[in-house]
Simulated assay, not measured.
Amino acid sequence: VACALATSLGKPMLGVHHLEGHLLSPFLSVDPPEFPFVALLVSGGHTQLMRVDGVGRYELLGETVDDAAGEAFDKSAKLMGLPYPGGPHLSRLAEQGRADAFALPRPMLHSGNLDFSFAGLKTAVRTHLVRLGWLDQPAALADPAHQAVLADLAASTQAAIAEVLVKKSLAALKATGLKRVVVAGGVGANRLLREQLNQACVRRGIRVHYPELHLCTDNGAMIALAAAMRLQSGQAALTRESVFDVRPRWDLSAV
């Protein structure tokens, strides 16, 4: 659609990757970062650590080998009977619980690399609900008498995810020698993640940058900004000929 609009209006077009929009979204904040920095891209579909030296100059340091952090939030929340999207609901429930109530795994925390894995955490949450006899039991999950235990499970789940994200981010900063980190994506709005990362970085003299809360989730402003930054950095817009490449299904040579 964008290609067609650009062609019909005689305008150039520049394609922007969705993750690049998230990556550069903190530049819209009141406290924008400066290059270079380590970026933690953390959302429902992605969990990545990147070294960012400039617009278009990205080095992948580590990523999830299975579920993303946001996916772990949403799937765990669904197991607990919480509505979708489950991440914010789980975080609110966690405020009433104890983070040390359930012993949950911290996957790949000591893997020796910067990759992530959250599928095992989701399985652990499921296992606890099976032991409680509440899995796939809406009445049990909604029972007010069970809410304190569910709050503890939510708090323990959130704590496990936040600890892995914080410690892997610190490891990336140590590996690169950089003193600045950017957190972007929907999970970047999580209060516990921000609190723990802020505290850890203050102790180490590291600057932390986030997009404004309303810009953490998918939005058009971050895509427009990424395009503008690409143009400003000298990466010219694609021409009409280079983007509108029609491939007919049938051979038209004889027409």
Rank of each mutant, 00 (worst) to 15 (best):
A2E: 12
L5K: 14
L9P: 08
L9V: 10
P12V: 10
V16R: 12
H17E: 14
L19V: 08
G21Y: 03
L23E: 04
L23K: 11
P26E: 04
P26N: 06
P26M: 02
F27T: 04
S29Q: 05
D31R: 15
D31W: 05
P32K: 10
E34Y: 01
E34L: 12
V38G: 02
A39N: 06
L41Q: 06
V42D: 04
S43Y: 08
S43F: 07
G45L: 11
H46M: 09
H46S: 09
L49M: 11
V52C: 10
L60K: 11
E63P: 00
E71Q: 10
D74G: 02
M80P: 08
M80F: 06
M80V: 03
G81E: 05
L82V: 09
P85N: 00
P85G: 01
G86W: 11
G86Y: 04
G86C: 09
H89P: 00
L90Q: 02
A94S: 10
R98M: 06
R98I: 00
A99F: 09
A99V: 00
A101I: 00
A103R: 15
A103E: 15
L104N: 06
L104F: 07
R106T: 03
L109H: 03
G112Q: 07
L114I: 10
F118I: 07
L121D: 08
T123F: 05
V125C: 07
R126G: 15
R126Q: 15
V130M: 14
G133Y: 03
W134Q: 02
L135F: 12
Q137W: 01
A140G: 02
L141W: 04
A142P: 04
A142C: 03
D143G: 11
D143R: 06
A145Y: 04
A148Y: 00
V149Y: 03
A151C: 09
D152C: 12
A154R: 02
Q158M: 04
A160T: 06
A160P: 04
E163K: 13
K167P: 00
K167N: 14
K168N: 06
S169C: 09
L170E: 09
A172K: 06
K174L: 12
V181F: 11
A189N: 08
A189Q: 08
L192G: 00
L193C: 11
R194I: 10
R194S: 06
R194F: 07
L197I: 02
Q199H: 15
V202N: 05
R204A: 14
I206P: 02
R207N: 13
H209K: 08
Y210T: 01
P211F: 03
L213D: 09
L213G: 01
H214L: 12
H214M: 11
L215W: 13
C216Q: 02
C216K: 08
C216W: 07
N219D: 05
G220T: 10
A221S: 13
A224Y: 02
A224E: 01
A224M: 00
L225V: 11
A227C: 13
M229R: 12
R230M: 07
R230K: 15
R230I: 00
L231P: 11
Q232N: 14
S233Y: 01
A236W: 05
A236R: 13
L238K: 13
T239R: 03
R240G: 01
S242T: 13
F244G: 04
D245I: 15
V246Q: 08
R247I: 14
R249A: 15
W250H: 15
S253C: 01
A254E: 15
